[in-house]
Simulated scan of single mutants.
Amino acid sequence: MARAGLDTHTLVLAAAELADEYGMEAVTLAALAAKLGVRSPSLYNHINGLAGLRTLMAVYGLEQLYEVISEATEGLSGEAAVHAMSQAYIGFTRAHPGLYQTTLKAPEQGDTALEAAGGKILSLIIQVISAFGLDEEGNLHAVRGLRSILHGFSTLEHQGGFGMPLDLNVTLTRLINTYIAGIRCMGSDADSLK
């Protein structure tokens, strides 16, 4: 019988806290059970092992990231939306480094919840990028580029890779300005790069 007050959402939130505080490597069923004051077998009433927990965490992380960037871009378009989305994305990775890490894995075939959560973010970013007049393929390349920039920036920051005494938010703003200048010319330059 499941313990009263213990449910899947509670497990995911507790696991996310562990991940943010200690890193994803620290998220084990034993650590989660200890955090919740239950025995490890009790967790199986709510999750399908560690792999199942990590998938649930990824879905939750993507949902939270979507909420953050959706709220940040509401009512904005073009450059302002790209900057707001980028700041929100980096803010999320700063606040939730472990949970963010769970969002990076591509969903396995048939993992509809993870596909749907990732798809919502992709659609939102495409909506923001579409202001720059790229075709469908160009939008996808631009999304990949932005994701690479933001993930690289957040990873370097989290790992202590920015040692110079410069404001990281200024660096991010300049980086996104450069990205925007690049996607403005993607439509005309794309064919010459093939």
Rank of each mutant, 00 (worst) to 15 (best):
residue 108 E to M: 13
residue 103 T to R: 06
residue 88 A to K: 00
residue 84 A to N: 12
residue 85 M to D: 03
residue 110 G to Y: 13
residue 88 A to D: 02
residue 113 A to I: 10
residue 105 K to Q: 11
residue 108 E to F: 12
residue 104 L to C: 02
residue 111 D to E: 14
residue 89 Y to S: 07
residue 95 A to D: 01
residue 101 Q to A: 15
residue 99 L to C: 02
residue 110 G to I: 09
residue 113 A to G: 11
residue 104 L to Q: 11
residue 108 E to K: 15
residue 84 A to P: 13
residue 97 P to T: 00
residue 88 A to R: 01
residue 99 L to V: 01
residue 107 P to I: 10
residue 108 E to N: 12
residue 106 A to L: 10
residue 101 Q to C: 03
residue 112 T to C: 07
residue 101 Q to N: 07
residue 85 M to Y: 14
residue 105 K to A: 14
residue 106 A to K: 12
residue 110 G to R: 10
residue 92 F to L: 05
residue 89 Y to A: 10
residue 104 L to V: 10
residue 91 G to P: 02
residue 111 D to S: 14
residue 84 A to K: 11
residue 96 H to M: 01
residue 112 T to R: 15
residue 92 F to G: 08
residue 83 H to M: 06
residue 110 G to T: 09
residue 90 I to E: 04
residue 103 T to Q: 06
residue 89 Y to L: 08
residue 107 P to Q: 14
residue 93 T to W: 05
residue 93 T to P: 02
residue 108 E to P: 04
residue 97 P to R: 05
residue 106 A to T: 04
residue 100 Y to A: 05
residue 93 T to F: 01
residue 96 H to K: 06
residue 106 A to D: 13
residue 91 G to R: 11
residue 92 F to S: 12
residue 96 H to I: 03
residue 108 E to L: 12
residue 101 Q to E: 09
residue 95 A to G: 04
residue 110 G to F: 11
residue 85 M to F: 14
residue 99 L to S: 02
residue 103 T to S: 15
residue 85 M to L: 14
residue 95 A to R: 11
residue 102 T to E: 10
residue 97 P to W: 01
residue 105 K to I: 13
residue 91 G to T: 03
residue 101 Q to I: 00
residue 93 T to Q: 04
residue 93 T to I: 05
residue 91 G to C: 06
residue 92 F to R: 06
residue 105 K to E: 14
residue 109 Q to G: 05
residue 88 A to S: 03
residue 109 Q to H: 05
residue 90 I to M: 07
residue 84 A to T: 10
residue 84 A to Q: 08
residue 101 Q to R: 07
residue 84 A to Y: 11
residue 83 H to Y: 12
residue 109 Q to K: 11
